[in-house]
Simulated scan of single mutants.
Amino acid sequence: MSQLEAAVEDALRAPSVHNSQPWRWRISTGEVRLYADEERHLIATDPDRRDLVLSCGAALHHLCVALAARDLAADVRRLPDPEDRTLLATVSVRHEPRGGDPDAAALYPAIAERRTDRRRMSRRPIPADHLQKLVEQASRTGASLVPVTDPARRQKLLAVIAEGERLLREEPGYASELWVWTHRLSGCHDGVPASHVAASVIDAIGPSPLRHFGTPGRAQAPWQPGHGTGEDAAELLVVTTAGDDVLDHLEAGEATSAVLLAATGLGHATTPLSQALEVDRTRLQVRRDILHVPEHPQLVVRVGWPATGAPALPPTPRRDLHAVLMT
């Protein structure tokens, strides 16, 4: 396997909406091209392709991290062909001594370690300097990360996320689309397996930000007696961009990847949350009533310490490299 093939294989570990892995790749001498796989577009969940492009942006960032770890310099051209909306990026690779970006390379070990953790997290607060490091990671991609740490604003955000999911469930085709991606046929290497769906927290005092994927396959560990309710200390962070077009969605995906990998490297558990941003009404509420910023919210990231004693999650399935390569 060539270095470029190995780097693309690492990029396949990127998170994606419903683990749909909506990407295709073409490798040639000194170049990798990233394409959106329109056949994996979740039309009911993601009518404007926001999640699809954001997912591909996360894979693009994973690729650049994997190239940097191999000491390869990468020049990225985003949306290089205005006549082909499926071609999202062209990555030209140069073989140079010490050509890899050391900041990107430092994130590489987290690619294999990162999981989407839908379980209750610890009550241990995240240090302020950790949040600042995540903010800095997002800014390196051109996006922004806004921590929603004020308790009142956090409760509003939780309520808007829950409202976004309620509205999604009223959309024609949403329920069947969700069922398809949570009940994959034996031998499929995509979708959300039951082993990664956690049971609801029965003693929580507020709305849950987690999407309801159906029958859970993983129990929530109970709190110790006398420890109060099921609320944890996970923080909610919102990825925002200056605009709201395809390039911004791609950039938001790159920022999401940077934040998730950096958080994993710091020892945190993470959960991307997109429900509130998949509905026009709730996306506007997040921007206008919660963040109070001119930028456009693209994704919410839940970050916290893993709950004490929580077992490590297995990796979610991924398609083989040969299944996503274009000739």
Rank of each mutant, 00 (worst) to 15 (best):
T149V: 10
P151N: 04
L145Y: 07
I126D: 01
A143L: 07
D117S: 10
P109W: 09
T149M: 00
P109N: 08
V160P: 14
D129G: 08
S144E: 11
P147V: 11
P151V: 01
R120F: 05
T141S: 03
R114I: 08
V135A: 12
H130Q: 14
V135G: 08
A112I: 06
R153H: 15
R123Q: 15
R140Y: 04
L158V: 06
R153S: 15
S139P: 12
P125N: 03
A138Y: 06
S144L: 09
Q132R: 10
G142I: 03
I111Q: 14
I126R: 05
R123I: 01
R118Y: 05
R114N: 06
E113L: 11
R123D: 15
V160R: 05
R120W: 04
I111E: 13
R115A: 06
R120I: 07
V146W: 06
R154Q: 08
K133I: 04
S122C: 05
L131E: 13
Q137H: 03
A152K: 04
P147D: 01
R118E: 00
A110Q: 05
L134R: 01
T141A: 01
R153V: 05
R120K: 11
S144K: 02
Q132L: 13
A159P: 05
M121S: 14
P147T: 10
R140K: 12
L158Q: 03
R153N: 12
S122H: 13
Q137L: 11
Q155S: 13
S144A: 15
R114A: 06
R114D: 14
L158N: 13
A128Y: 06
R115C: 07
D129W: 10
K133M: 09
A112S: 13
R154E: 02
T116G: 13
H130C: 06
V146R: 10
E136K: 09
R153C: 08
V146L: 02
R118A: 09
P127R: 12
V146H: 07
V146M: 09
G142V: 02
V135W: 02
A159G: 09
Q132D: 10
V160Y: 04
L131R: 12
A152R: 10
V148N: 01
S122A: 14
P109C: 11
H130P: 04
P147C: 13
A159V: 08
R120E: 15
R154W: 08
L131F: 05
H130S: 13
K156D: 15
D129A: 06
T141I: 10
Y108S: 15
R140E: 00
V148G: 07
V146Q: 02
P125K: 03
T116R: 13
P151F: 04
T149Q: 07
A128V: 08
V135H: 02
E113Q: 13
R115Q: 12
A110K: 04
E136L: 10
D117E: 12
L131S: 11
A112M: 11
T141E: 06
I126A: 09
A112Y: 13
R153A: 15
D129H: 10
R123K: 11
P127M: 04
I126G: 10
L134T: 00
A143C: 01
L145R: 08
H130L: 03
L145C: 09
Q155T: 11
S144M: 10
P147R: 09
P151Q: 02
R115G: 11
R115P: 05
Q137G: 12
A159T: 07
A143R: 02
